[in-house]
Amino acid sequence: MSITLDHVEYKYSEGTPMETEALHDVSLEIRDGEFIGLIGHTGSGKSTLIQHLNGLMRATGGDILYNGESIYREGYSMKELRSHVGLVFQYPEYQLFESDVLSDVCFGPKNQGLSEEQAKARAIEALRLVGMGEEYDKRSPFDLSGGQKRRAAIAGVLAMKPEVLILDEPTAGLDPKGRDEILGQIARLHREQGLTVILVSHSMEDVAVYVDRLLVMDHGRLRFDGAPREVFSHYRELEEIGLAAPRVTYIAHALKEAGFPVRTDVITVAEAEEAILCTLNGTNEREKATP
């Protein structure tokens, strides 16, 4: 199970004076079970890129392979691709339309051709996966809070049992508690169900904690592709393209400049805590050692 992008290009309004290049020569491979973060400045091509992965947008150049088969091949079923590659758009709660939560989550599985009962079973499973209990099943999706609506919408995609789950800024506009809950549940799905996850985010802190591979987009190009620690070590270049490293990375660098021998490759708060404690203990021991 993998998605391969082979020199993918996308141009808006090709052949007119308004032609703009949204993706330029993007090649990458998304392997089974990866947890990938995708970051980039507004307009860098992130959203365009993810819409290519389930065939909502068609590349104007290059090729995309799903499990080794070109999705642009004659007769390839886009509908089937979309049930393998689930895409949760930004502010997915605005796609809710049914009169109760359960029916709304059933929409996807029903489109896949499942029977009423099967769809319902899938929907219930998906709702429990995002932490929404039975008490919500019969409620109107429009009476829920922002975070609950969002979870119901994510369940709507999960109910289709995708192998790859793409989320475009799933935490935008949520409070810290809602954000941690959603990201925690996504991480659990990745861990327990072996789901391949692609997380588009603006928060360097979030991607540093959760993902194990980080893609950085800039002006339609793939600028970095690697482990978060490795990518964030280029924090000067990241700043040039309107991004940054997690705040703790800067703190570590500042401490080092101030003369403390701290590791500077920390990217999460937990790591920073450990590194600073380690340095403090080290200095203490040295102080003790000197009479």
């Binding site: 509908k79 758009f89 605005y94 796609q95 709507g156």
Partner: peptide, 13 residues
């Protein structure tokens, strides 16, 4: 456009 895409992603036709 946006809602259409979101529902298409959920298999709508």
């Amino acid at each position: 456009d946006r809602i259409m895409k979101a529902q298409t992603a959920r298999g709508a036709d």
